[in-house]
């Protein structure tokens, strides 16, 4: 994973609450077996509307999404994070994130920055009144800055550390392979076994 310290890009106001992962990317776009190219499915239903924010300049080239509360609810599809990142987003700002979406973001290097709803409202007004305003999200200081607007954001400390260092979760866990092996030796024998098949 690429390390993230700070990012500056055009802010995109998305005045909607409860943006679920079916809105971020509908199920029909989940059939690919590769990990790239999901930008065409991003907000697919809304992008048919020419007034939708991503269909308007200068928001089209945005990379910091500012959304309403409860962003990313619903399905566990990590494709939602891939679609946002493939489109070019590096940060989503919201006052509340769904748990699985937040987790998936942290694994992929998309910063889910949690701000107070009052700050989200101020940012929306700024981005709507002055379209094209750039927003700087600084993970070293946990701040969102746009023109003379500054607000703090929160993010889980461990995720923040991993993002700043660009560390791969699996490699971190495998440092504790001995602990895992010890745990496995002590598991009760009656726990179910799925009866795997010989490798062909």
């Amino acid at each position: 994973m690429e390390a993230f310290t700070t990012h500056t890009g055009v802010g995109v106001p998305l005045r909607r609450s409860n943006v679920d992962t079916d809105q971020i990317i509908p199920a029909v776009y989940l059939k690919r077996v590769t990990r790239s190219g999901f930008e065409d499915g991003l907000f697919a239903a809304w992008r048919g509307d020419e007034q939708f924010v991503l269909n308007r300049e200068p928001f089209r080239a945005g990379s910091v999404l500012v959304a309403g509360p409860d962003f990313g609810t619903g399905s566990s599809r990590e494709h939602a994070v891939w679609a946002l990142m493939d489109y070019g987003f590096r940060v989503v700002i919201s006052s509340r994130f769904a748990d699985i979406f937040r987790g998936n973001s942290g694994k992929q290097g998309l910063v889910a920055a949690q701000c107070e709803q009052s700050d989200v409202e101020l940012l929306w007004k700024l981005l709507e009144n002055e379209p094209g305003t750039e927003v700087t999200v600084d993970l070293t200081r946990n701040t969102v800055v746009a023109k003379d607007f500054t607000a703090p954001f929160t993010i889980d400390e461990y995720t923040r550390w991993r993002l700043l260092e660009g560390l791969d979760d699996i490699a971190l866990t495998l440092r504790h392979a001995d602990d895992i092996a010890t745990f496995e030796r002590n598991r009760p024998g009656w726990l179910p076994n799925t009866e795997p098949v010989p490798v062909s």
Binding site: S76, E78, Q108, I170
Partner: peptide
């Protein structure tokens, strides 16, 4: 439920 990165993990 978990995401695909966690599935791999």
């Amino acid at each position: 439920g978990i995401g695909t990165s966690e599935v791999e993990h």
